[in-house]
């Protein structure tokens, strides 16, 4: 979908030369330090931003030529910020995710999708609450439920676990993996490298606007590469029981020896 993509703002290059295919059946984790271009990449994939260089295509069509209504039936997006100008209820917000399907045959399934998405995001018990009265994590889960209710083949998640407690973090990523197994293409920007290692099929490591590595967690999450990209030494351990990779900052080295 992405070919040689670059994006500049006011002459500053935020992203350059990125090639990426978002594949059905795969959960791709996008990782990298602050300012590496992760959100920019997601904005390009979502069709929010026009690439300065290169092309972003969706099913063979340049993404800027796809009408917004069609695009909304192809991809759902969870943003980092969850705000709402007016005090809609949680149920109303989740139902907003169904609006792209209005007037199509899929509209008949609205109630089922809304209920399933709310249950999956564990906000069903909050259905009648007004959105502004929710906690940060509850807002994030409501927004996640809205994106899920959209039931699109592609799901783009920008830091879906940022505001969540440990149970809900695991819940959301396990669901993202299950959706990928069911044939969806899922892209998640993540900060927690151990979470990325545990759930992702592929990991894209961005550093200073460039793709530094793309491959399986074991290929990408190497101590030497991560240490260089993040400019902080890390240790990559293998969990003794599950065999999962665990990425930890190396806290034993003195600051000036990094």
């Amino acid at each position: 979908m992405l070919r040689g993509v670059g994006f500049d703002v006011d002459g500053v290059t935020l992203l350059d030369g990125v090639d990426l295919d978002v594949e059905p059946g795969s959960l791709l984790a996008v990782v990298g330090p602050n300012g590496a271009g992760k959100s920019t990449l997601l904005g390009l994939l979502a069709g929010d931003l026009r690439p300065t260089r290169g092309t972003v295509t969706s099913a063979g069509t340049a993404i800027e030529d796809v009408p917004v209504a069609d695009l909304a039936r192809r991809r759902a997006v969870l943003l980092q910020e969850h705000r709402l100008s007016f005090p809609f209820s949680v149920a109303e917000v989740v139902r907003m995710g169904r609006s792209p399907w209005r007037g199509t045959a899929a509209e008949d399934d609205d109630d089922r999708h809304v209920t399933e998405a709310a249950a999956a995001a564990d906000v069903l018990h909050l259905a009648d609450r007004r959105f502004p009265t929710l906690s940060g994590g509850e807002k994030a889960r409501t927004a996640y439920a809205r994106a899920r209710a959209q039931a699109t083949p592609v799901l783009l998640l920008d830091e879906p676990t940022a505001a969540l407690d440990i149970r809900h973090q695991e819940m959301v990523l396990a669901q993202a993996r299950d959706l990928a197994r069911a044939g969806h293409a899922v892209v998640a920007v993540l900060h927690d490298l151990s979470l990325a290692a545990a759930y992702a099929d592929r990991v894209l490591l961005l550093g200073e606007g460039r793709a530094r590595a793309l491959g399986t967690p074991a290929e990408v999450l190497r101590a030497d590469l991560l240490g260089e990209v993040y400019r902080h030494r890390v240790e990559v351990l293998t969990h003794p029981r599950t065999g999962d990779l665990i990425v930890l900052p190396d806290r034993t080295t003195p600051e000036d020896h990094r």
């Binding site: 979502a46 929010d48 917004v68 695009l71 759902a76 943003l79 709402l84």
Partner: peptide, 20 residues
Amino acid sequence: ARRLDLLALGERAARHVGVD
């Protein structure tokens, strides 16, 4: 009216659910 509801999500999110 219907699309104004969606606009309450913010401009970017409104676009994501198909609002021009």
